[in-house]
Design a protein around this nucleic acid. Sequence first.
DNA 1: AGAAGGGCTATGGGGTGTGG
DNA 2: CCACACCCCATAGCCCTTCT
Length: 230
Amino acid sequence: MRRADRLFQITQILRGRRNTTAKYLAERLGVGERTIYRDIRDLGLSGVPIEGEAGVGYRLKQGFDLPPLMFNIGEIHAMVAGLRLISTWGGNALKQQAHSVLEKIYAILPIDKQIAFERTPLFAPEFVNASQRGLFDQLHQSCQEQQKVLIRYRDGQQNHSERIVHPLALFFWGNTWTLLAWCELRQAFRSFRSDRITEAELLDQHFISPPGQQLQDYLRLIEHECDTTS
DNA sequence: AGAAGGGCTATGGGGTGTGG
DNA sequence: CCACACCCCATAGCCCTTCT
């Protein structure tokens, strides 16, 4: 780790804790306590208001904060999707940690970014088939931009169809992504396995989902079905 | 060569437990 | 309640090694 990175890490650690000892910092950052003392001294000389108290530890003076570190929508989607994967596929501890990270990220976001965070239309990351990356990008974009998509689809019985859909979210079920969308043809929610979408064309038309056609409506529907079957 | 980091040591201050 | 001992930890100096 570069020294500059370590100094940044120290301020980050101090921000998240009440009192932090040099020993703790040394263990966390993999250096000696003497090095931490020098780092703290240098941070102080750089204007970072760190208070040190013998027998207690270090803490940042109240009110001190770093210049805002902000994320764009794409970065937020990347973080949320990644953490949702960990949450889904990791153990209990990892799941808790992922939730904790999500809460922390959410807490520091301004209101408009919090909305983007909540509306992240990715419910699992990592699509398995690399050849589908282009399609995935299209579908992801259409979810984000609320852009209608014309898809050509081949179902399990090899029936081909062509329909205009309102993409709402992508779900990963273990081996393939499925696109959840409101189907104009069926006037209902439909899921489309991405590996069965033979072609997708983003249309120059945007949609606004009315009540009953929104992602939250679908999630409620699923939740209700789970409750009645269990 | 100079910077960074580690080991060792000494000093001083705060927190805590204990006994009177 | 107070004094005291002890522990923990910050701080700093010195010297040596390692890294860039």
